[in-house]
Amino acid sequence: MSQLLAKTIAAIKPLDKTAMEKAATRQDILTKPQGALGRLEEISIRLAGIQGKAIPVIKTKAVITMAGDHGVVAEKVGNYPQEVTPQMVLNFVRGGAAINVIARQIGARVVVVNMGVAGDLPADIRVVDKRVARGTGNIARGPAMTEAQAIQSIEAGIEVVNAEIDKGLDIVGTGDMGIGNTTPSAAICAVMSGQSVDKVTGRGTGLSDEQLQHKIKVIEKAIAVNKPDAKNGIDVLSKIGGFEIGGIAGVILGAAARGVPVVVDGFISGAGALIAEALAPQAREYMFLGHLSVEPGHRIMADKLGLKPIVTLDLRLGEGTGAAFGIFIAETSARILAEMATFGEAGVSEKAE
């Protein structure tokens, strides 16, 4: 394991229990019945533990959208050509994608990262260039990448989130773009959860029944060909993963090491979260699950990570859209804890005589 990755993992500490206790105590004296705000209370208390502050603060927000291509598209596992990946990257940069719209509404910046787009991008666009290679290998025929490339992709994510934290960042969401990326994500889910491929594989961009069965067979072949070790996150990523999945894992690890909460998006981000958790189980405490995707494997990922979705909106877009909604609700929970009056401040009787 390289120095940056090892140092980052070592820096991930348990949550601040004292801050969490103080946050819980304040929640119980706000002008409401105890527990009346449900999971908003739970989220604010965990935010306190992550930030090490009795009253957490969320002002500066970002969604980091990782883009990469996949050699497995040669197996015809989807309905869109690989050319869509660089086209959508340009759409992100121009502000025309769904994530841009939602991010503007919640006041978050969108950081677009080229982790391994196969096509060419203009040299002057606002994209962070961390390209490991021009797309991964075809996992149905061999490994997605080398072990060195897997580590490089994770460290790229760490470097990106560290740069954003240095600019000012209270919470970060993960996002993705990459034609064919539900295939490696399903493979990672199956291997790391121990579930069968048919249980974790969904229709992605809208596959027919026949196409879905073909996709399942391709994933089963990829696992059989590569034989990834479920207990070794680097091995799983290198054999059946993607550069953007590694980048997402790096964002999670890097944020956790710096005490920044991470809102995980959908199925592809979930694959990155599984890799991150395999490398540093403590990182799970820094994760929130923004939403529950309609991809069947996403619930299995959530259960494996022990995370409950903040919202369920039947999303299956990626980009960081579900993470953005989660960021909004996390900020709301922090503001309630900070700004809502206590019984004493409001002059309201706390309990009936």
Rank of each mutant, 00 (worst) to 15 (best):
A24N: 12
Q27T: 05
L30W: 02
K32G: 05
P33M: 15
Q34D: 14
G35T: 08
G35N: 06
A36C: 09
A36S: 12
A36G: 11
A36P: 01
L37Y: 06
L37F: 10
G38Y: 09
G38S: 12
R39D: 04
R39H: 04
I45A: 00
I45G: 00
R46M: 05
L47N: 01
G49A: 03
G49R: 00
I50Q: 00
Q51D: 03
I55P: 00
I55F: 02
V57G: 07
I58K: 00
K59F: 02
T60D: 11
T60G: 12
T60N: 13
K61E: 00
A62H: 06
I64G: 03
I64W: 10
T65E: 04
M66S: 01
A67C: 14
G68P: 02
D69G: 07
D69M: 05
H70K: 08
G71P: 05
V72F: 04
V73L: 12
A74K: 15
A74G: 08
E75R: 06
E75Y: 09
K76M: 07
K76F: 15
K76G: 13
G78I: 15
N79T: 13
N79Q: 14
Y80L: 11
P81A: 07
P81L: 07
Q82L: 10
T85K: 03
P86I: 05
P86V: 03
Q87L: 14
M88I: 08
M88G: 02
V89C: 01
F92L: 03
G95W: 05
G95L: 04
G95Y: 05
G96D: 14
G96M: 15
A97W: 00
A98Y: 15
I99D: 06
I99Q: 06
N100T: 09
N100A: 07
N100F: 03
V101F: 15
I102S: 04
A103E: 07
R104F: 13
Q105T: 13
G107K: 09
G107Y: 04
A108S: 08
A108C: 06
R109T: 10
R109F: 02
V110H: 00
V110Q: 01
V110G: 04
V110W: 00
V112I: 11
V112M: 09
V113N: 01
N114I: 07
M115Q: 11
V117W: 03
A118I: 15
A118D: 07
G119W: 05
G119E: 12
D120T: 13
D120V: 10
L121M: 12
P122S: 11
P122A: 08
A123D: 15
V127T: 05
V127K: 02
V127E: 05
D129W: 12
K130R: 14
R131M: 06
R131Y: 12
R131F: 04
V132W: 01
V132E: 03
A133M: 07
A133L: 06
G135K: 01
T136F: 00
T136G: 02
R141D: 13
R141N: 13
R141V: 06
G142W: 12
G142L: 05
G142I: 04
G142N: 05
P143V: 09
M145L: 09
M145H: 08
T146A: 09
E147K: 14
A148S: 15
I151Y: 08
Q152P: 01
I154M: 08
E155A: 01
A156R: 04
G157T: 09
I158W: 00
N162P: 07
E164T: 03
E164I: 01
E164A: 08
